[in-house]
Computed example of a mutant assay.
Amino acid sequence: MDIAKIKVSEVMSRGVVTVGLEARLEEILNQLLENKVHAVIVTAKDGEFMGVVSHSDIIETLARRGQKIFELTAEDIMCPKPYYVKGDASLKEAAVKMINNGVHRLIVFSSHMGRLLPVGILSAIDIVRVVSQ
């Protein structure tokens, strides 16, 4: 199997769970649990991709801020510059980006009128599933 010929859009998890910049931690945790995901995408009111909040972001924030974390919003907790990839990139390109940056997931986006709009997530597990078939 040549992963250089497979596009990210063919493998990614479609659709994303999003929260607004003003979402409080309780809402973020509810979205993570209800949707059984490890990260939520943070978007501006117009849907533009602003960042991501993952389990590890929450744990790191809790370690730094303790109990005050429940007063924070997604904008306070999120990683504002997560790694991302276009849907037409190859799985090989995505895998190299993950390895080089030590991450387990990439946000997949499309560009519309100069804005980045999240359309999916590609995880390392998604790539492993394809390679193991």
Rank of each mutant, 00 (worst) to 15 (best):
Val85Leu: 02
Ala23Val: 01
Ala4Lys: 14
Met113Ala: 10
Ser111Pro: 01
Gly20Lys: 10
Phe70Trp: 15
Asp126Arg: 00
Arg65Ile: 08
Glu10Tyr: 05
Ile77Glu: 04
Met50Pro: 02
Ile99Ala: 13
Asn100Ser: 14
Lys68Asn: 14
Lys45Phe: 03
Lys68Ala: 12
Asn35Trp: 05
Ile6Asn: 06
Ala39Glu: 09
Gly102Arg: 15
Ile3Arg: 09
Lys7Gln: 13
Thr18Asp: 00
Thr73Trp: 01
Glu26Ser: 15
Glu60Trp: 03
Pro82His: 03
Met113Cys: 04
Gly51Phe: 05
Val131Gly: 05
Asp2Val: 04
Gly51Ser: 03
Ala95Phe: 14
Gly47Ala: 03
Ala39Cys: 10
Phe109Tyr: 15
Val119Ile: 15
Leu62Asn: 03
Leu116Gln: 11
Tyr84Asp: 06
Lys92Pro: 00
His38Tyr: 07
Met78Leu: 02
Arg129Cys: 04
Cys79Thr: 15
Lys36Gly: 09
Ala74Arg: 12
Asn30Phe: 09
Ala63Arg: 12
Lys45Glu: 12
Ala74Glu: 09
Pro82Met: 02
Ile127Val: 15
Ile121Cys: 09
Met12Phe: 04
Val96Thr: 10
Asp88Ile: 04
Ala94Glu: 08
Val16Asn: 04
Ile28Trp: 00
Lys36Thr: 12
Ile58Arg: 04
Phe70Lys: 10
Gly20Ile: 04
Leu32Met: 11
Val108Lys: 00
Lys92Asn: 11
Glu75Tyr: 13
Leu33Gln: 06
Ala4Trp: 01
Ile127Phe: 05
Asp57Met: 06
Asp88Trp: 07
Phe109Cys: 12
Pro82Ile: 03
Val40Tyr: 06
Ile99Pro: 06
Lys97Ala: 14
Val8Asn: 06
Ala95Gln: 11
Ser13Arg: 12
Ala74Ile: 10
Leu106Trp: 02
Gly51Asp: 05
Glu71Cys: 05
Asp88Lys: 00
Gln67Val: 08
Cys79Asp: 14
Tyr83Gln: 14
Lys86Gln: 07
Arg115Glu: 13
Ala124Arg: 09
His55Asn: 14
Val16Thr: 12
Leu62Cys: 01
Lys68Met: 09
Lys81Val: 11
Lys7Val: 05
Leu25Gln: 08
Val96Pro: 00
Cys79Ala: 10
Met12Gly: 02
Gln67His: 07
Val11Glu: 03
Val16Phe: 03
Arg105Leu: 07
Asp88Glu: 15
Leu62Pro: 00
Thr18His: 00
Lys36Trp: 06
Gly15Trp: 03
Val11Cys: 07
Val8Lys: 04
Val119Pro: 05
His112Asp: 08
Ala95Ile: 04
Ala4Pro: 04
Val40Pro: 09
Asp76Gly: 11
Thr18Ile: 08
His38Met: 06
Gly51His: 05
Val37Tyr: 06
Thr18Phe: 02
Ala39Met: 13
Glu48His: 00
Lys97Gln: 10
Met98Pro: 01
Val16Ile: 13
Ala74Tyr: 11
Tyr83Asn: 08
Gly87Ala: 05
Thr43Pro: 01
Ala23Phe: 03
Lys81Glu: 13
Lys68Ile: 01
Tyr84Ala: 09
Pro80Cys: 02
Leu72Arg: 14
Cys79His: 15
Gly51Leu: 05
Met113Lys: 15
Ile125Arg: 14
Lys97Asn: 09
Glu75Val: 08
Glu27His: 07
Val8Met: 05
Thr18Cys: 06
Arg105His: 14
Gln133Tyr: 11
Ile41Met: 00
Glu48Val: 02
Leu25Ala: 10
Leu122Val: 11
Arg129Ala: 08
